[in-house]
């Protein structure tokens, strides 16, 4: 520690300033973040555990859970494969239009969720581009499961790519080039060299992608048509119950989504603590 050579008077002892700042930040975080989270569980259990479990076991709730899982099971792997392909192309090769491709990948993050759903209605809806053709072939996309999947894919498209691109850029391609020179085939090289290097970042991206996919509301609500038991995902079920003044039911389903959020946060934090270096330069926020 340096010698106490302070000649100027310290009007406010630093410790007091620090304590006040810490207190302010914690009060804000508690009132603004912790309290809404607590509200979800308190409201869900307002009438006790029985009605809570009852509300979750209703057929509409169960079908909403199934549909949410189905949508995520399709949309997340699609964006996983896309993210790997995009990151491989963008970090291992030079080509014209790379910056533009990067900007397009980020595009869904700056589009309102409602617009993300709207664009598919304009494409596949009854009066959309392909509406008449789809209609005459008996294919339903809007107000049906394919529309929900597409809207979710649009909204969650950037997550994996955004996580992988900065990391693979930072890692460079020496190891892969060495493997290539030693005679590894393309897929051998990918599965034995690249994948082990990016696995934690990949998991991180998938985690965030999945959280958004299961929780998406705006985009999905536009293409859903709100057909109970058929096209209502969990967030839509929350909305419908809430609007019908079924508060315990709404918060019961909401509590499952809040639990998903908590698990996501816990795993995310764990990954950051243990494998921070291997997730590395992840984009701030990451949405």
């Amino acid at each position: 520690m340096s010698a106490p050579l302070r000649s100027r008077p310290v009007a406010w002892p630093r410790r007091v300033v620090h304590a006040v700042l810490i207190l302010l930040a914690l009060v804000f975080l508690t009132l603004f973040l912790l309290l809404p989270l607590a509200t979800v569980f308190v409201e869900a259990l307002r009438q006790g555990l029985g009605p809570y479990l009852e509300a979750i076991k209703e057929p509409e709730a169960l079908s909403a859970i199934r549909l949410t899982l189905l949508v995520a099971v399709i949309a997340v792997p699609m964006n996983l494969v896309f993210g790997i392909a995009a990151a491989w192309a963008m970090t291992r090769f030079e080509f014209r239009g790379k910056a533009l491709l990067g900007a397009f990948i980020d595009l869904p993050f700056s589009v309102s969720p409602v617009v993300s759903g709207l664009v598919y209605v304009l494409l596949f809806g009854a009066r959309g581009w392909f509406g008449p053709w789809l209609d005459s072939h008996g294919i339903k996309i809007i107000f049906a499961v394919p529309g929900l999947v597409l809207a979710t894919m649009f909204v969650t498209l950037p997550f994996v790519a955004r996580e992988l691109i900065p990391l693979m850029q930072a890692q460079g391609s020496e190891e892969e080039e060495a493997a290539r020179v030693l005679g590894a085939s393309g897929w051998q090289l990918f599965f034995r060299v690249t994948l082990p290097n990016i696995r934690w970042a990949l998991l991180y991206g998938v985690l965030l992608c999945n959280a958004r996919a299961m929780g998406e509301f705006g985009a999905v609500s536009v293409v859903s048509g709100h057909i109970r038991g058929l096209t209502t995902t969990m967030p839509l079920e929350v909305e419908m119950r809430y609007n019908e003044y079924e508060y315990v039911g709404a918060f019961a389903v909401a509590s499952l989504l809040a639990l998903l959020a908590l698990v996501t946060l816990a795993v995310k934090t764990l990954l950051e603590w243990r494998y921070g270096d291997e997730i590395a330069a992840h984009a701030p926020g990451g949405h």
């Binding site: 973040l33 809404p36 989270l37 509200t39 979800v40 409201e43 969720p113 965030l208 959280a211 299961m214 929780g215 998406e216 509301f217 705006g218 969990m234 967030p235 839509l236 929350v238 909305e239 809430y242 709404a250 918060f251 909401a254 989504l257 809040a258 998903l260 959020a261 908590l262 996501t264 946060l265 995310k268 926020g285 990451g286 949405h287």
Partner: peptide, 14 residues
């Protein structure tokens, strides 16, 4: 990160 992770509809009703 809670606002990122918590679905918007849940945040809305809460």
């Amino acid at each position: 990160d809670l606002p990122f992770a918590l679905p918007t509809a849940v945040a809305g009703i809460a």
